[in-house]
């Protein structure tokens, strides 16, 4: 992605996605607009390479090894994950806009630190995540906790 394209994308992204982009992964989007309402676009990268990058770049550090813990990616309502170009724009955006004090703890990723190709691979890997989250009824410990809480308090 060249600089001009980046700028254009950034501008579009900034106008269209201002709140969610700045809020970062996993955080609430503007009222009434959730990712779930839009079908996600295609992922063109290599998920196997993305897996290595997800680790090497430390993505797991906040988003968990499977995208299910910490600031979750699975089930995230963030629109930054709904399309590949949107995702890349998100990674680039704050590096360009607010290099010193980004609005979230999510690092900035200018192109010279993470190529478009690498970003696409990471995106493909994130999109390959499968939930390991069972239904509540299938987790005995959590049901035991609820049952116990129904009992009256004893000092």
């Amino acid at each position: 992605m060249n600089v001009k394209n980046l700028r254009t994308t950034v501008l579009l992204a900034a106008v269209a996605l201002l709140i969610p982009v700045i809020a970062g992964f996993g955080e609430a989007v503007a009222a009434g607009q959730t990712a779930a309402q839009q079908p996600p676009g295609p992922a063109t990268g290599n998920a196997a390479s993305g897996k290595n990058l997800y680790y090497a770049q430390g993505c797991y550090g906040c988003h968990g090894f499977n995208g299910e813990t910490g600031t979750r990616l699975i089930g995230s309502p963030s629109r930054n994950l709904t399309s590949e170009p949107g995702f890349i724009a998100f990674l680039r955006l704050r590096a360009d806009q607010a290099p010193l004090l980004p609005a979230t703890r999510m690092p900035n990723y200018p192109e010279n630190s993470l190529s478009d190709r690498q970003a696409r691979d990471i995106y493909a890997y994130i999109r390959s995540f499968k939930s390991t989250t069972p239904e509540l009824k299938d987790i005995p410990a959590l049901n035991l906790i609820i049952e116990a809480a129904k009992k009256p308090y004893t000092p």
């Binding site: 299910e68 813990t69 699975i74 390991t132 989250t133 069972p134 987790i139 959590l142």
Partner: peptide, 8 residues
């Protein structure tokens, strides 16, 4: 707390 329950 269900999230990632079976993850490693």
């Amino acid at each position: 707390r269900r999230n990632g329950w079976n993850g490693s």
